[in-house]
Amino acid sequence: MRPQISSASRKPILRSKGKGGKRRNPAWRFLLPSLLGTSIFILIPFGDVVRRSFTEAFSGAFVGIENYKTVFANEAFTLAMKNTLRFLFICIPLLLVSSLVLSLAVGRMGRAKRVFQASFLIPMAVPVVSVVLFWQLVFDRGGYLNQILSVFGAQPIDWMNEDTAFGVLVFCYLWKNIGYFVVLWLAGLGAIPKSYYEAARVDGANGWKCFRYITLPQLVPTLFMVTILAFVNSFKVFREAYLIAGDYPHESIYLLQHLFNNWFASLDVQKMSTAAVVLAVVISALICVLLLLERKIGSED
């Protein structure tokens, strides 16, 4: 019996007979509900969205890239695109570095590790709407932050209604996400074999050298997924922006998410379709760059 099982585990014999004697893989039966739903709610209508981005609203006539010209000439769109990209390129590196530093520190804490981890992670559980009041208490003109700063003689600032709104948003994003990324890094750090460090110690390597030549290179495989997750979460910062500042916030934090909402309110399907296609293309391009980078770094090892 035994050898049969082990040889079977390599080649899939997991086939049952479908109609007409044709062998059908049972995997499809497990996949079917998910595939069907995803096709109906996302994939097929997205095809329709692509079509709409090339047609006129009422007649449905093909207009080529006319919609794209309109969207790119739209000031709100360029502002939102610019702000969103700026947010991504500032927030993601900031989040990755600060959470890595914290995870290295937390990892050395022994018994207190769990407590620290929990206190960093709890913001991810708290609904945004529950802490919005607190952020208002902090960043209002008469709020905590200005009171603390006034001790040093600073003039009060209306944090949410000036260029500083961008900084507030970055702060909220870090507060909410750092714990999640500390856990991610700790998982990556835990996967590095201890023997590497022991060998390095024997060779007389110091802490920084261990970090530079063992920890960092070993974290590269983790880096790819971590960056992607940071990206995914960065779009959700709209929740904070919306709940603190509403539909039309200060222009430094007018993001693509606000733009979509406002176009949605006026039911401008053509513009929204076009912008959705542009966004999907830009994001796919970013992912491809990441994948290529990962391949390149991976092949150098």
């Binding site: 709610f41 969205v49 779009f235 693509l256 998410q257 959705a276 994001i283």
Partner: peptide, 8 residues
């Protein structure tokens, strides 16, 4: 992000 699929 949600915004890409929301129209669909």
């Amino acid at each position: 992000p949600f915004q890409v699929t929301m129209v669909s």
